[in-house]
Computed example of a mutant assay.
Amino acid sequence: MRNRQYSVGLLIILLGIVILLGKTGVFSFAIGMLWPLFVLVPGLLFHFFYFSRMMPSGVLIPGGILVTVSILFFICNFFGWHHMAWLWPGFILAVAIGLYEFYLFDNEHPKGVLTAAIILGVLAAVFFTFTVLFTSGIYFVAVALILVGAFMMFRRPRF
């Protein structure tokens, strides 16, 4: 009987701790910051299923997409969602990564899939470059002007 009282007492203490942590916002903060795990875990499971030979290589496409998108979500969760203004080409890159994984690990190595992955990867890089230039381009222009001016001031003339 003494062990049962001990177990019930321990259960009541744990329940109190859970309620106290819930009321202080610990769980809502953790869920609010770690919800991208619900996107990451299925992507990792797709990879696990392929590499353990339980599913065909086609599962690498959604696996690569989900893992890449979850990384974008984690970045925005930890550093702020305003970064999505220049991270949005990552969604195009996610599809390129998924297709490239499929090409890389499929036995037939389909050329059309590689072509699509390269096109989407280049498109994502172009969009990312333009986005960074249009959102933060003035800083690059300022640094370039400073460097050109310093070069012009301190270069040695050739006679």
Rank of each mutant, 00 (worst) to 15 (best):
L34I: 01
C76E: 15
G58R: 11
V59S: 03
M54K: 15
L37H: 08
P62F: 00
W86A: 03
Y139T: 04
W35A: 01
L60V: 02
F78E: 12
S7A: 14
A125G: 10
F74H: 05
H83Y: 12
S70P: 01
G80M: 05
N3Q: 15
H47S: 09
F74S: 04
T115P: 05
S70G: 01
T24H: 13
F154E: 14
C76S: 12
F102M: 05
G63M: 00
V59K: 01
G32F: 09
L20C: 04
F105Q: 02
W81I: 03
I97V: 12
I119V: 10
F49A: 10
F51W: 02
F151T: 13
Y100M: 11
G63I: 01
L20A: 11
P36L: 02
S52I: 04
L21A: 07
I65P: 05
F91W: 08
K111A: 11
G137S: 09
L10G: 13
G63W: 00
I71F: 12
L145F: 07
F102E: 08
N107R: 15
T115F: 13
G58P: 14
F73L: 15
G16E: 08
R53D: 12
L40D: 08
M1T: 06
P110L: 11
I119W: 02
F91P: 05
P89S: 03
F134K: 09
A124P: 08
L147S: 09
L21T: 00
F130S: 10
V67C: 06
F151I: 09
Y50M: 07
A150V: 11
K111G: 03
F151P: 11
G80N: 04
W86I: 15
D106M: 06
K23Q: 14
A124D: 09
I71W: 14
I92R: 00
G43L: 03
L145P: 08
P110H: 07
I138L: 14
R158L: 15
I61C: 01
Y50E: 06
R53E: 13
L60R: 04
L14Q: 10
R156W: 13
V148C: 01
I146K: 06
A124M: 07
S57I: 02
M1S: 13
V69P: 12
L99W: 04
F51N: 01
T131Q: 13
V59N: 02
T68A: 11
F105M: 05
L21P: 10
R4I: 08
I12V: 13
F159P: 15
R155G: 03
W88Y: 06
A30W: 11
L147G: 00
S136E: 15
L11F: 09
W81D: 07
